[in-house]
Design a binder for these strands. Structure first.
Length: 414
DNA sequence: AAGTGTTTACGTTTAG
DNA sequence: CTAAACGTAAACACTT
């Protein structure tokens, strides 16, 4: 009966939390950042279930965006029309779903803000999850789950002039305001001041990440399943390809999410993901199964590159030990060599109607630029060496932006 | 006014 | 079983 044949999956709720869905949307975008409305679209397009009760779930989604530190807000540039800001993933939230379940994270990604000097604030609303004062409580002395906590010491009030994605890079590369759109990560940095709260830390972190290598790969640091760098042989190649090509495959990349084993279900048994997914009536992309089905619009579409990456992951690539002391993959994020493409200074923000998919297409080989390729990242290679350092001493110009804000990422074993 | 963002509050589900 | 993660509702404040 539950023959998923082709009946609509619409009546079934996708096995993903709002956080997962949102992350997918963002990750799927060419610039790794999307305005709220586009996030809605993304979800509605591929998950019929969400074509209804929009009022309800969208409110929830918004709540999640604001409430979770894994999402960072990036303001629009003045010349970019539209409502609301762009949303991106926090660079360090990469392994939120390391447990394999996209329904529930093992632990909520929380940014620690050390700053709070006067923040005895306990008083206020700390996230329910995190105690007041914003300190995350480790309560699990068991596994040394090394969590990266980004601490922001002193955030400045930066006045961001060009908040757009591009900005990020511009900051690092000293490129003109309209440089290529880069990893949102950096962007945040540029726009940090705009709003207080988690954003600030995020901004700082982002800046660091961006500075350290920026770019697609850098958009979200610290991936646990796709060590961007330092893998062995083939795997490395695959990963590299994936990274430089269609944009690195963040764990949230739809390809990964859908393609990866759906542990929530498999966990116990270990059924091949394809079966399980199928059982659930979900299209089965192909990591293991290779069955790229496309019942759902784009869900599950896995391009060859992604597949390669998946393969690498499946192959059991070790999680790169090459993470710097600050949680930012030291060199992983920098593609210096691999892609020093002349980022085409392009549109900062392609219109919302951007063809995300197509933009991903570009090339595995040719960085070149056809036209509106956001190859921003590249530019940011600027300060590769030490992220933090670079952060502090702006490689450049837009000094204004990160002036005064010092980022501090700390590795914590909880 | 409608769309966005933030916050609270509280019920539900599930990992540990 | 408990605590944390998650989902939902709702009351604002802001911005376009």
């Amino acid at each position: 009966m539950p023959r998923p044949g082709k009946s609509s999956y619409s009546d079934q709720k996708p096995p993903y939390s709002y956080i997962s869905l949102t992350a997918m949307a963002i990750q799927h975008s060419a610039e790794k950042m999307l305005p709220l409305s586009d996030i809605y679209k993304f979800i509605m397009e591929r998950f019929p279930y969400y074509r209804e009760h929009t009022q309800r779930w969208q409110n929830s989604l918004r709540h999640n965006l604001s409430f979770n530190d894994c999402f960072i807000k990036i303001p629009r540039r003045p010349d970019q029309p539209g409502k609301g800001s762009f949303w991106a993933l926090h660079p360090d939230c990469g392994d939120m779903f390391e447990n394999g379940s996209f329904l529930r994270r093992r632990k909520r990604f929380k940014v620690l803000r050390a700053d709070h000097a006067h923040l005895h604030a306990g008083s206020t609303k700390g996230a329910p999850g995190a105690g007041p004062g914003g300190h995350l409580h480790p309560h699990h002395h068991h596994h040394p789950t090394t969590t990266i906590i980004t601490t922001l010491l002193r955030t400045t009030t930066i006045t961001t002039t060009h908040p757009s994605p591009a900005a990020y890079c511009s900051a690092a590369a000293s490129a003109p305001p309209v440089a290529a759109p880069a990893a949102p990560t950096a962007a945040v940095a540029a726009s940090a001041a705009v709003s207080p709260g988690k954003m600030q830390e995020a901004a700082a972190v982002a800046a660091a990440a961006a500075a350290s290598g920026g770019g697609r790969v850098g958009s979200v640091g610290r991936l646990s399943q796709f060590p961007p760098y330092g893998l062995g042989s083939a795997a490395a190649a695959a990963a590299a390809a994936a990274a430089s090509t269609s944009g690195f495959k963040h764990p949230f990349a739809i390809e990964n999410i859908i393609g990866r084993d759906y542990k929530g279900v498999l966990q116990a048994g270990g059924l091949p993901l394809a079966s399980v997914m199928h059982h659930l009536g979900y299209p089965v992309p192909g990591q293991l199964g290779n069955v790229v089905s496309s019942v759902w619009p784009h869900v599950g579409v896995m391009d060859s590159v992604a597949a390669a990456a998946a393969a690498a992951a499946a192959a059991g690539v070790p999680v790169g030990p090459e993470y710097g002391a600050f949680g930012v993959p030291v060199k992983a994020l920098c593609h210096s060599a691999s892609q020093s493409l002349p980022a085409v200074p392009v549109p900062i923000k392609p219109t919302p109607a951007l063809p995300p998919v197509s933009s991903l297409q570009p090339a595995l080989t040719v960085p070149a630029a056809s036209q509106q390729p956001p190859a921003p990242s590249t530019v940011c290679s600027a300060a590769a060496a030490s992220p933090v350092a670079s952060l502090l001493e702006p490689t450049a110009p837009t000094a204004a932006e990160s002036k005064g804000s010092s980022l501090h990422s700390v590795l914590v074993h909880s």
